[in-house]
Amino acid sequence: MALTFEVDPAFDRTLRDGITALWADVTNAGGAVGFVAPVTADDVRPELVRHLAAMAEGRTHLVVGRDEDGEVAATAFLTHNTHRLMRHWIGVYTVMVHPRHQGKGFGRELMEAVAGAARGLDGIGAVRLTCRGGTGADRFYASCGYKEVGRVPDAIRVAEDDYRDDVIMLLPLPAR
């Protein structure tokens, strides 16, 4: 079984609710996607609305993976860099695979879909992401071809006495 990926799908209530539930489930399973567990759908919904506003303005693209039942199983958001000297790379944020689907290779499929979506955009030569240190995410992204290009020590505070590095990674895209 594989996921079916789509870039910039038509957005409706079902997709909205699927992403909201995915985000809460990933966070509550320990995922490093902008929140610290425990969260509810009501906690993550305002952040999703910010992503949706950026999508409506054309600044952000959604990559969504659905399982064989058509349920949202994976997502990533690609956001154009607005700085005029850095428009040649795109950022990827909120990379998520539902916990029930982890360990099946779907994360790697999602990252391949992200790279494919970025290659389809004019003038994009690289994909940049950041991840929370201490989670193993940097090793996963490295296995997908990303290279660590920077690290900000203790930049992320997940608890009063728990600080994590912000790891910056880059995937150069071959010229088309």
Rank of each mutant, 00 (worst) to 15 (best):
F5V: 10
L173A: 04
D69I: 02
G145V: 01
T14Q: 15
R151Y: 02
E109W: 00
L121R: 01
M169C: 03
G103T: 11
R128K: 14
F11P: 01
T40S: 14
A41C: 09
G145Q: 07
R45Y: 07
R119I: 01
D161I: 05
L170K: 11
L173G: 06
V49M: 12
L52G: 04
T130I: 13
S143E: 09
D154I: 04
V44I: 05
G123L: 12
L171W: 01
A115E: 14
A175W: 04
T94C: 14
P174H: 10
A37M: 09
R164C: 10
V97C: 01
A10G: 13
L171D: 03
G133A: 07
A113Y: 07
R128D: 14
T135G: 01
S143F: 04
E112L: 15
E109T: 06
G34K: 09
D161N: 14
I168W: 12
L22H: 02
R176D: 11
N28T: 06
A142S: 13
D166H: 05
T4Y: 00
V95Y: 07
T75R: 02
G70W: 00
M1R: 13
G18C: 08
D122Q: 13
A56Y: 00
V127C: 05
D43E: 05
P99R: 10
G150K: 00
C131F: 06
D17S: 12
L48D: 02
L121C: 04
P172M: 03
D25E: 15
L15N: 01
Y146N: 04
G125Y: 01
G65T: 07
H51P: 00
T4G: 06
M111G: 05
L52C: 05
D67N: 14
L85P: 00
L170I: 12
V7G: 11
K104G: 09
A29W: 06
A73T: 01
G136T: 12
P172E: 14
H101F: 00
V39F: 00
A117F: 04
G65M: 09
L22I: 10
V63N: 05
V97F: 02
A53R: 14
V26E: 08
E47W: 07
R87K: 15
F140K: 13
E148G: 04
A10D: 15
M1V: 11
A155K: 07
T27V: 15
V152E: 15
